[in-house]
Simulated scan of single mutants.
Amino acid sequence: MEEEIFNIISHGGDARALAYEALEQARNGHIKVAQEKLKKAQEELDLAHNTQTKLIQTELNGESIKMSLLMVHAQDQLMTAISEKCLIEQMVKMYEEFRK
């Protein structure tokens, strides 16, 4: 199970980094590059979410999932990455509108 937890942390962290790279690109006027970075960020979030779903299904099938501080950290990282990516998407749209 530790492998899955680290998978969530890793992909969530990569998604968050890509989202902030997108914001920087948008700030510099590179909207298309920013949109591509956001697309890659979503792909990373999808990978993390798929792992999270696998763990949830395991628990629903009757296998006990040990709740650890590491698991809580992984869930926190994923939720934060999702939230920040959504906000950055809106910010990129604002930069795009400002440039018009």
Rank of each mutant, 00 (worst) to 15 (best):
A17P: 03
T58S: 14
K54G: 02
Q57G: 02
S83F: 06
E44D: 15
Q35A: 07
I31L: 07
C86K: 11
L87P: 07
H30D: 15
T53K: 07
R16E: 11
S83Q: 15
E24F: 02
F98N: 05
L70G: 02
I31F: 01
K32A: 06
I31N: 01
Y20A: 01
V72I: 15
L38G: 13
V92K: 01
K54T: 11
E36A: 12
I5F: 08
S10L: 09
I65L: 15
I9R: 07
G62Q: 09
L47G: 00
I88A: 03
R99G: 05
S64R: 10
D46Q: 11
E43S: 14
Q35K: 15
E84T: 08
S10D: 07
E84S: 04
K39L: 15
L70Q: 11
H11Q: 14
N61F: 06
Q52H: 11
I65G: 09
Q25R: 14
G62H: 11
E36R: 15
I9P: 04
N28R: 14
Q90R: 12
A22I: 02
L45M: 11
E59H: 08
K93P: 01
H73L: 01
Q35Y: 07
A19Q: 06
L38Q: 12
I88Q: 02
T58C: 06
F98M: 13
Q90M: 14
Y95K: 03
L60N: 09
I82R: 13
K66N: 10
S83A: 13
K100Q: 12
Q77V: 08
E36C: 08
N50E: 10
A48D: 10
K32M: 10
K39N: 13
I8M: 10
E3C: 01
C86G: 12
Q77W: 05
V72K: 04
E97R: 13
Q25S: 14
S68E: 14
L87Y: 03
I9Y: 07
E24W: 05
G13E: 09
A17W: 00
K100N: 13
C86F: 12
I88E: 01
Q52I: 03
Q35G: 00
K39C: 03
K39Q: 14
Y20K: 08
D14Y: 03
I88L: 01
M79D: 10
M71Y: 14
D14H: 08
D76C: 07
E96N: 05
I5W: 04
R16F: 00
L55A: 05
T51G: 05
D46T: 10
M67V: 15
F98Q: 12
V92A: 10
K85P: 00
L38H: 09
H11A: 15
V72F: 06
K40D: 10
A48L: 04
S68N: 05
G12K: 01
M91E: 10
A41P: 04
Y95S: 03
A22E: 07
S83E: 11
I56P: 00
A26L: 06
G62R: 08
Q75V: 03
Y95G: 08
A81T: 03
